Amino acid sequence: MIVIMAGGRSSRMGREKPILRVGGVPMLLRVYYEAEKAGETVVALSRNTPKTRELCLREGVPFFDTPGKGYVEDIKWLLCEFGPFVSVSSDLPFVTTGDIAAVKQAFDGETNLTGVLPLWLVPRDLKPLTYNGYAIVGLNAVGTRGESFFELSNPLLALNVNTPEELRLANRIARLVGR
C-alpha cells in the first residue's frame, strides 16, 4: 500500500499545504495521481487538515484519519494499523510514478528505506534537509526493522514545499517543465 501523508500542521506555511496549488493543481492531487498509478493509494489525514478532507471527499480520493500527534507518531500508528507501506509526503509536487514504483519495488516489506538524492543532483536553489552527503526526500518505505538509504535520481524530489518561498519556486518550476 502507498500512503500519502497529508495530516500535518503546516506550521511553516501557515495554512494547509496539501490543498495549495502548484501548476494549477492542488499538491495532494498531483501526488495522488502519480501514486495511484504505482499501486493502491490512500491519504492519511488528521484533525489538522479539514480542508484537505473536503478536497478528498469532493475528488473521491480515499483517506483515513490518523491521531495527528506528529509525523513520527502517525507513521508508527499507520505501521501498527496497516503493516509495512510506502510513504510519500503530500508536499512533493514533482514526485513521479517511477519514483514511487522504484521505492515500492526495492522494499522487502521489512527494512525501512529512506529516499535520498546525492547532493550533486540537488538544484542549487533548493535547500533540502541533508545527511551524510545526501538530501533526504519525503518518499520512504516503512517497515519493521533496520534502515537503509534508497538513492533516487529525480532532482525535483529535493523540493519539499514547506514555505511560501518554496511554493513560489514550485510554481516557477511547474511553468518551466510544463507540469
Score class of each variant (00 low, 15 high):
Val86Ser: 03
Val3Gln: 09
Pro123Trp: 03
Lys51Thr: 03
Asp99Ala: 10
Thr49Leu: 01
Tyr33Glu: 15
Val42His: 00
Thr163Phe: 05
Val72Leu: 15
Glu165Gln: 12
Phe107Asp: 03
Arg179Trp: 14
Gly60Lys: 10
Ile4Met: 07
Pro67Met: 10
Pro155Ala: 06
Ala170Met: 11
Glu54Gln: 11
Cys80Asn: 15
Gly68Val: 10
Leu159Glu: 06
Ser148Cys: 08
Pro93Trp: 01
Trp77Leu: 08
Ile173Glu: 02
Leu167Glu: 09
Gly60Trp: 09
Ser153Phe: 06
Val3Thr: 12
Gly68Asp: 12
Glu34His: 07
Pro62Glu: 08
Tyr32Thr: 10
Asp108Val: 13
Pro26Thr: 09
Asn171Gln: 08
Ala141Trp: 07
Thr130Arg: 03
Ser90Gly: 15
Lys51Arg: 15
Gly60Cys: 09
Asp91His: 07
Ser87Gly: 05
Val42Leu: 10
Thr111Gly: 01
Ile136Phe: 08
Ser89Ile: 01
Trp120Asn: 14
Leu157Trp: 00
Tyr134Ala: 01
Ala38Leu: 10
Met27Tyr: 14
Tyr33Met: 09
Ile19Trp: 03
Met13Thr: 10
Thr96Pro: 03
Leu113Arg: 02
Ala158Val: 05
Ile136Gly: 03
Val116Ser: 04
Thr49Arg: 04
Met5Val: 05
Cys80Lys: 15
Met5Tyr: 13
Val25His: 06
Asp65Glu: 14
Phe64His: 00
Gly146Lys: 13
Leu78His: 00
Tyr131Thr: 04
Ala141His: 07
Thr144Ile: 13
Ala135Arg: 09
Leu92Thr: 12
Asn171Lys: 05
Val61Arg: 04
Asp91Thr: 14
Ile173Phe: 05
Gly7Asn: 09
Leu167Gly: 09
Glu36Phe: 11
Arg12His: 09
Asn48Pro: 01
Ala44Trp: 07
Gly115Ile: 03
Thr49His: 04
Glu36Gly: 00
Gly146Trp: 06
Trp77Asn: 09
Leu121Trp: 01
Pro118Tyr: 02
Met13Trp: 12
Ala35Phe: 13
Val86Phe: 03
Arg58Trp: 08
Ile173Lys: 02
Leu28Ile: 14
Asp74Thr: 07
Thr144Lys: 14
Gly60Ser: 03
Gly83Met: 10
Asp65Gln: 08
Thr114Ser: 02
Pro164Asn: 05
Leu152Asn: 03
Cys56Gln: 09
Leu159Pro: 07
Val86Pro: 00
Ile4Leu: 07
Asn154Asp: 08
Phe63Trp: 14
Leu29Cys: 00
Ser10Leu: 10
Glu54Lys: 14
Lys127Cys: 02
Leu79Ser: 02
Val43Thr: 04
Phe85Gly: 03
Asn48Arg: 08
Asp99Ser: 09
Leu121Tyr: 00
Gly83Glu: 11
Leu78Ile: 10
Glu81Ser: 13
Gly133Trp: 12
Leu117Asn: 05
Pro93Asn: 03
Asp74His: 08
Leu117His: 02
Val161Tyr: 10
Gly146Ser: 05
Ala158Gly: 13
